[in-house]
Design a protein around this nucleic acid. Structure first.
Length: 720
DNA sequence: TTTAGGG
DNA sequence: CCCTAAA
């Protein structure tokens, strides 16, 4: 039910005016496709919240790639069984209440009250409780003064807060109560004013120190940083220079692993969240909106070249419309204000055709453009040795994602490393830090749009492909062939100095190449066969939640389409220019001219180039389902076929089904010797030909004829 | 958004 | 699988 609600509200958040067909939508789509997993696209369709599902999928993807690619540890289940969602709140403001319903920028900047506002974004799992405040609706103030607020997502501290730690939070602890699964790092607040870019380096260390102090007590502390600061932290190698201050990410290290012992997977899902963003409005001084945006860009762009950040400028148009639409504080009102088109859409597509909704929504995003550029920060993964044997129930994989953290040194667990009896190095990756993101958005944008923006950024980052880097004592180990033994990682003391980073996929193949890949040593319980693509989590919980009343599955005839193991495309493009950085830049059409001058991403188009979906050959069972559906529905009704037999197969679009049918027909006509791939039973091929022949002649006649359909009323055969 | 086809 | 013209 909750989701139903969300579904509805979700649309409010998309009440963006007509969006010109832009590259954004394409990009989005491609980003998803990068993983070759259409399901990602479909997932968000289900609950009408694209953003959320995107993040979720991304996280799942990330987790999957990092941890499950090979072993398919149970963690994958976890990852895929939860829900991710953004939570936003204003930290600066001492309010305890949720401010989600308010526009990002509530008070006019010129009032001087903006500088104090900050927002925190959290990517948290949201598997159980649904906080109403987390709904994705947005309200924009009538304030028509367009302003841009910059949101920089980044972490300054090596701190790795775990869920457990979160519980200890005091000051802000309360805020977190509603988001029990959120987390962790403190983010830098960056003013977008031109001046901020010129802050001094000298402050960096101070900041760090201070931060440490603050964070010792609270997991959440906001700081005002500067561009320069950020830059400093970006380079992983620089960390070496400041190990002392940063090396203390300990506080969390000692914390007990979160994840319930009973459920090895839960830990993962619970901790998997965590992108938290603190944003600080940049305008102490309010100036022309347009002007501002321009200047802001300039000030940031250069200094941030090396960073991975996402920036997004919303066109004034957007803002305008947004505010108009959401003029009323009430959702219902907002709805009323919606253009007829939207309303009708909403009504029509609510659940059955959820997919359509997604498309609509995606369209709305088209206005924006995202680009990925090199020179970013690495996501850092902190690993810590295991205290408990993997064999034990304690298989919790605390993998949390943290946001762009610039850690001076790879932070590792403080517990003495565990050397298993069998000479295996046991590592526990406690958290993953999400690369730094840079976002720019009009202050009049709604929280909902802000969330989406952030989500987009996160999505882009994750979707762009990541690879794992290993740091030992802060130094990157480039040689993938060296053994852990050789590096000394197997030594207790070394393990503690081991760190992992998430970097844009590049030249170097994933660490997995190394036979000693740490991942292999991660505790994974293979007892639970993971037939489902870990990256496609939503199909079960997601669907059921989103459509409690809809026939999620036909357990009887449902076909597991996921047996085909999905391989994650290893991003090994060699031309990637800057390996460690990737920046997402979202630029609204209207702002393009302003940005035109700025050399954005002369990045490797590679990162921008979309990757085609991974190949996912149809399994026999899928073919079976397809054939059956077509026999009944006929050709030319692919959407229906999709709905009937593949509604739960997130990937497999009707186009895919159509294509598959096409190939099936072809396959059926060629000699068995010429066929390739998994052999399709001749019986099915015969049916294909029969059905094809039949429907070729009954094009216009709908299935009134029972010639081929003996089981007219048979329940739909759904493929999962 | 779907369909229908070519690539 | 992708891309798109058409509908």
């Amino acid at each position: 039910m909750v989701f139903q609600k969300k579904l509805d509200y979700g649309f409010n958040g998309y009440q963006v005016p007509a969006v010109p067909r832009g590259s954004r939508s394409v990009r989005r789509r491609r980003l998803f496709k990068k993983n070759g997993d259409d399901s990602q696209m479909c997932a968000f369709d289900l609950n009408g919240d694209e953003s959320r599902m995107c993040a979720f999928d991304l996280l799942a993807t990330l987790a999957g790639e990092l941890l499950l690619e090979k072993e398919r540890s149970p963690a994958s289940c976890n990852v895929s069984s939860g829900r991710t969602e953004f939570a936003i709140r204003k930290d600066s403001i001492k309010q305890e209440q949720q401010d989600e319903e308010h526009s990002f920028k509530q008070e006019p900047c010129d009032q001087g009250s903006c500088d104090e506002s900050a927002s925190v974004f959290m990517l948290g799992s949201h598997s159980q409780s649904h906080d109403p405040s987390s709904m994705d609706y947005s309200h924009a103030k009538e304030d028509s003064t367009p302003r841009l607020a910059s949101v920089i997502v980044k972490s300054e501290k090596p701190k790795n807060t775990s869920y457990a730690e979160e519980l200890v939070v005091d000051e802000d602890g309360k805020e977190y109560e509603n988001y029990p699964h959120t987390i962790h790092e403190t983010r830098h607040v960056e003013g977008s004013s031109p001046g901020s870019a010129e802050s001094h380096d000298g402050k960096v260390e101070d900041e760090i120190e201070r931060q440490l102090e603050v964070e010792q007590r609270s997991t959440k502390s906001l700081k005002h940083g500067t561009v320069s600061d950020i830059i400093h932290w970006d380079d992983p190698m620089e960390m070496d220079t400041k190990p002392p201050a940063l090396a203390s990410s300990d506080s969390s290290a000692e914390l007990p692993m979160y994840g319930s012992a009973q459920n090895p997977c839960s830990s993962f899902s619970r901790c998997r969240d965590d992108v938290k963003v603190v944003s600080k409005d940049d305008d102490e001084n309010s100036s022309g909106c347009t002007q501002r945006s321009t200047s802001t860009l300039k000030s940031f762009r250069l200094p941030c070249l090396g960073d991975r950040r996402i920036r997004k400028l919303m066109a004034s148009k957007y803002r305008k419309s947004a505010s108009t639409i959401t003029k009323d504080g009430e959702l219902s009102n907002s709805e009323l204000d919606m253009k007829p088109v939207f309303r009708s859409r909403k009504i029509c597509y609510t659940r059955q055709r959820s997919q359509r909704c997604s498309f609509k929504r995606r369209k709305l995003f088209e206005r924006s453009k995202i680009s990925i550029s090199d020179g970013g920060t690495n996501t850092k993964v902190v690993s810590d040795s295991f205290e408990k044997g993997i064999s034990g129930e304690e298989t919790g994989l605390g993998a949390t994602m943290h946001q762009g953290s610039r850690v001076s040194s790879p932070v590792i667990g403080h517990k003495s490393s565990m050397q298993s009896r069998d000479s295996h190095v046991k590592l526990r990756i406690k958290s993953f830090k999400v690369p730094e993101l840079f976002i720019e958005i009009p202050e009049t944008a709604t929280v909902g749009s802000l969330k989406r923006t952030v989500m987009d950024a996160v999505t882009a980052v994750f979707g762009g492909g990541l690879r794992v880097g290993v740091l030992l004592h802060g130094k990157k180990i480039r040689d993938d062939n060296i053994t852990l033994l050789q590096t000394g990682i197997s030594c207790d003391d070394k393990v503690e100095n081991l760190g992992f980073t998430l970097e844009p996929a590049t030249v170097h193949p994933p660490l997995s190449q190394s036979s000693e890949d740490p991942r292999c040593l991660l505790p994974c319980d293979s007892s639970q066969p993971v037939t489902r693509n870990p990256l496609v989590p939503a199909s079960d919980p997601g669907v059921s939640e989103a459509f409690p009343d809809s026939p999620v599955t036909n357990s009887g005839n449902s076909i597991e389409s996921n047996h085909d193991s999905v391989s994650f495309p290893a991003d090994t493009s060699p031309e990637k220019s800057t390996p460690d950085s990737k920046a997402l830049v979202a630029i609204p059409a209207t702002s393009l001219e302003a940005l035109a001058m700025v050399p954005l991403h002369r990045k490797s188009k590679r990162s921008e180039v979309v990757q085609r979906r991974i190949r996912r050959p149809f399994s026999v069972s899928e073919v079976e389902a397809l054939v059956q559906a077509v026999e009944r529905l006929g050709t030319g009704r692919w959407r229906d076929v999709k709905l009937r037999a593949f509604e739960n197969a997130k990937h497999r679009t009707y186009v895919d089904l159509k294509d598959k049918w096409k190939t099936l027909v072809h396959t059926a006509r060629i000699s068995p010797q010429q066929r390739r791939g998994e052999p399709v039973p001749q019986e099915l091929l015969d049916r294909v030909l029969a059905a094809h022949a039949y429907w070729s002649q009954h094009q216009n006649k709908h299935h009134n004829n029972k010639l081929m359909l003996q089981q007219q009323s048979e329940p739909p055969c759904l493929v999962h």
